[in-house]
Write a protein that binds this DNA or RNA. Structure first.
Lengths: 151, 151
DNA sequence: TTAGGTGCAAATCTTTTGCAGAAAG
DNA sequence: CTTTCTGCAAAAGATTTGCACCTAA
């Protein structure tokens, strides 16, 4: 994990930003919870455990900065809060989301299925894709299993 | 357009809701601006022109109701406001969005490319998709043309 | 040393809600 | 009539900002 932090530190410094203890603590929390989709408030509460003096505004500012640097991705699943996802190392493309409408779980799939579609977009619409986002809403495996039991 | 309003009126009444003048005015605005992705505020300002006494809260309540009825779809492009899109007649599946990162334009494509992917999801992940959402971010045709001129 | 960062509180912005009066079916 | 709606104003949340004081490099 230290390697990843050092790398981000370099990215920060390359743009004239500093790696403060608050920013480092926030990064640690994000790295430790890579699989979750934390809101700013979530991050704040977790960071508070390791750096109690931090303020919510600082968390917002840090997350905004990390979004600019493409270290995290800001997502919105429509529930009124922004969520933040660590972006994988060098992948220009995101994972996609499977959002369960029953239990609310958000899981990820990493396949990159959309390249052929992007090529088609380029040809048919002259649209030059730099990024995409794909979410599926439905019933996840375990909710499906549960509802089959009750039949 | 009247046909569409009548149809929605029936949907409303089937659930015990009333078609008030405010709701009808809101529907007209949505139908007249089918191609745009209006925020609640946008809708409010437009409805005010034809029904000046309407309140913003009523617009929010109407949009919420129409979302429940699947007449509109509530979308979030990450700019802090929800936007509302009229849903096509009977299509379970949405159009997808091409969002230009340069001019901010949002246009739509109607192809339904994702059915094969949904089948794969069902097989590989046992995830039963009921809906999906796909947005591409990139440079649109006209911004592309413009930047080529300056070279 | 100094540009950038922080915490706090206040401000802003979107959306929701309580309520008393209005109106559709 | 009765149940649902409406407008208003207040409330609720999420996020941003101003400011005086810090601190990483």
């Amino acid at each position: 994990m230290q390697a990843q932090i050092d790398k981000i530190k370099q990215q920060l410094q390359a743009q004239g930003y500093k790696l403060t203890p608050q920013r480092e603590a926030t990064l640690r929390i994000l790295l430790e919870n890579e699989e979750d989709h934390l809101s700013a408030e979530d991050v704040f509460l977790l960071v508070k455990e390791i750096a109690p003096e931090i303020g919510l505004a600082t968390v917002y500012r840090t997350l905004e900065l990390l979004t600019e640097l493409h270290v995290v991705e800001k997502l919105n699943f429509g529930d009124g809060v922004a969520r933040y996802d660590l972006r994988g190392d060098s992948n220009r493309h995101h994972h996609h989301h499977l959002i369960c409408v029953q239990c609310g779980d958000v899981s990820e799939i990493k396949d990159d299925w959309l390249l052929p579609l992007e090529e088609r977009l380029q040809e048919q619409y002259k649209f030059e894709t730099v990024d995409h986002r794909l979410d599926f809403h439905g019933i996840c495996k375990s909710c499906r299993a549960m509802s089959e039991q009750t039949i």
